[in-house]
Nucleic acid binder design. Sequence first.
DNA 1: TATTGTTATACTCTATAACTATA
DNA 2: TATAGTTATAGAGTATAACAATA
Lengths: 146, 146
Amino acid sequence: MTSVNDDSRVGAAHVGRLLGMALLRIRAEILATTSERFPGLRVSHYRLLELIPPDGARITDLAEIATMTKQGLGQHVDYLQRLGYTTSERLPEDRRVRLVRRTPLGDEALAYSQAAIARVEERWSRQLGPDRYESFRQTLRELGAD
Amino acid sequence: MTSVNDDSRVGAAHVGRLLGMALLRIRAEILATTSERFPGLRVSHYRLLELIPPDGARITDLAEIATMTKQGLGQHVDYLQRLGYTTSERLPEDRRVRLVRRTPLGDEALAYSQAAIARVEERWSRQLGPDRYESFRQTLRELGAD
DNA sequence: TATTGTTATACTCTATAACTATA
DNA sequence: TATAGTTATAGAGTATAACAATA
């Protein structure tokens, strides 16, 4: 009775579980290589830092890009701003709007997380060979765009 | 300023985002095809139903298989039991142990979610062709086992 | 003493509803 | 009135700590 289902083996796992395991690895790699240098930043914050263009963006636009509510996104922005990773200012021509920008510290944190992702991509590319890895990425792109 | 980063395009998305998008599709497909028939069951519950072998399992073992704490897993088991998808009984030979089993309703719900996953797999297999799809699955297996 | 499972509590992520300030 | 953003609240998922019952 303490045995597990056959499906719990990696070989028989369904595609949802396989995708989930791969995703967990990336998240773990990001945190492992950033958490000491940028304590308090979590994966969700790196995702938001990635979405901010160099000249800044409005909360409403970021929320749409992130497919989140502006309330939820605003909470992350407040958090990042408190820690010094973003700044924001009201637009003079429309003072309802808050333009959010990364600080230099935010740029640095983003570069770190992108380097972590790049390391995973390089490891996977070495493991599979560049052709198979590029083919894997291409498949993911097609499945995401269907 | 309302433009988005280049990386927000699917084509340039990093592998973490690509994996996340594919995973969201599967989760949405499971819920879309089960929520009417099994209201109250969420994706996390289907995952747990999958892990229970036909002859039952202990909470501690399920927690290990699921890589969750036994507290967290026990909460899901309580929920499923309240809705009639699982039952449990203390073992006579060790009354600390609760043996968790799926009910016939739990079997039915599990079959439904597995059918939903199978439909995604078939759709993806048609979309990519069976060879490319099997190669994609094989790559995911290798990345999950590294 | 060690193990199984529970209770209490908290954190993360995200959502909905109601609101304020500005246009 | 409409829009940008905020405040308040809640639910989903999961974690840690302290505990009770049993071995």
